[in-house]
Design a protein around this nucleic acid. Structure first.
Lengths: 223, 223
DNA sequence: TCAAAAGTGTTTCTGGTACACCCATGC
DNA sequence: GCATGGGTGTACCAGAAACACTTTTGA
């Protein structure tokens, strides 16, 4: 039994204005579900790892390289209306919104959509988004996820807002700041925000080298 | 481009005598890698969810239903010697060793092998075992994994040995017992072990209802 | 001087870790 | 009575959680 295999990509970004995680959706140009909003992706048409396929498709869609790409899982399409055997492998990716804004004139083809306000998606795309989100939350416990989605220099409050959006919980800002300051790989800069009508915030940045060192020695307790 | 899709199963069990996690391997009856030890599995030949396929293949192999089945991930076989496009989806499963012992006369076809002493496996099966093990370790932090692999009634020390095997670290038994006694879903029985030449150990069992209740209220802290 | 958001410390509590000896049984 | 593995408690420390006011800027 032979299958066509699709890769579906859940591309997350973070909207600093709205303090919301967003997902990139495109309007499907072909049947089935033509004209509906759905996840970007495409069929595997080369002999290569699925991650490579996913990265390639995304580069075609957006013109940029995503900075983080992980497999969610594989899904069998149990309702193959087209009479074809279909399987799909979902990947989630992170993309700084500043690096990719859908062209204004193509707004009808690709758009960032708030995770909280997703339309009903065709096929199993809704499920895939949920699964990917869960995976992203899990990944962010062990890995420096937010730095892919924030500008290089950011104030701590933005970082906090990001975590609040990711986990959908409010965080205590004093405890949060204390926690971040204990991380050796988040480094305070001498710089502050400019031109705001309130006390300017100090800027921080992610330190890759410090993170590598830190990663080496990190161990998790069992059970 | 069309693919054949295989499911590969990493079936874990726990050997109480050796205090070792084990994986079920079979001797491949067909080329490629004919006669070598490899993971059980087979090609997807029905229109159904991959998990269902995996469960079916395992029932065919072992004659029993596994009690836990989770997808690891999908892999593209990047070196298709057969000239065929192959993909595979790995699943890991848990099976109480008491429920399935490979028939003695078929020892050459299926066998439990210590995770610590795996032979070199063909294809990417070695990688898959490692990935599955990692996933199992992760799952055991949040879910009552061990109870699928221990007899219904067990002494706490066996539970401890299981965790030591799973995470490959020694645990302090006083702290471990303290931890377990704090879990509402592990319930002490009035019964003790019989016929051992040392102090008999008290038996415990997993309480499904208590676990369901506990699961509801469990929340993990973000970041 | 006001509005708006940034920033700051202390106390309490909980859970993790380290550590050494007595107990019940069969032989 | 001895060998074998089962079973117990306490003190210390680190990290999480709760909690309210002052600071800096532009308008």
């Amino acid at each position: 039994m032979l299958f066509k295999i699709a890769v579906d990509c859940i591309i997350f970004t973070y909207d600093q204005q709205a303090h919301q995680l967003q997902v990139l959706l495109i309007r499907r140009e072909n049947a089935p579900a033509q004209g509906e909003w759905a996840l970007p992706g495409g069929f595997v048409d080369q002999l290569e790892d699925f991650a490579v396929t996913a990265a390639r498709k995304l580069r075609q869609e957006t013109g940029v390289d995503v900075s983080y790409l992980e497999q969610v899982q594989a899904y069998a399409l149990t309702d193959p209306t087209a009479g074809q055997r279909l399987a799909s492998v979902a990947y989630y990716a992170l993309l700084d919104v500043a690096h990719y804004a859908p062209a204004a004139d193509r707004t009808h083809y690709a758009q960032w959509v708030d995770l909280a306000q997703l339309p009903v998606l065709p096929f199993d795309h809704g499920q895939k988004v949920q699964d990917a989100w869960r995976r992203l939350q899990e990944a962010a416990r062990h890995r420096p996820v937010p730095f892919h989605l924030l500008p290089r220099k950011f104030p701590l409050n933005h970082l906090q807002k990001f975590y609040e959006a990711l986990y959908q919980v409010p965080l205590d800002n004093r405890n949060f700041r204390k926690w971040v300051k204990g991380l050796p790989y988040v480094e305070a800069l001498a710089e502050v925000e400019q031109g705001v009508s309130h006390r300017p915030s100090q800027l921080y940045q992610f330190n890759t080298a410090a993170y590598s060192a830190y990663e080496q020695i990190t161990q998790r307790t069992p059970y």
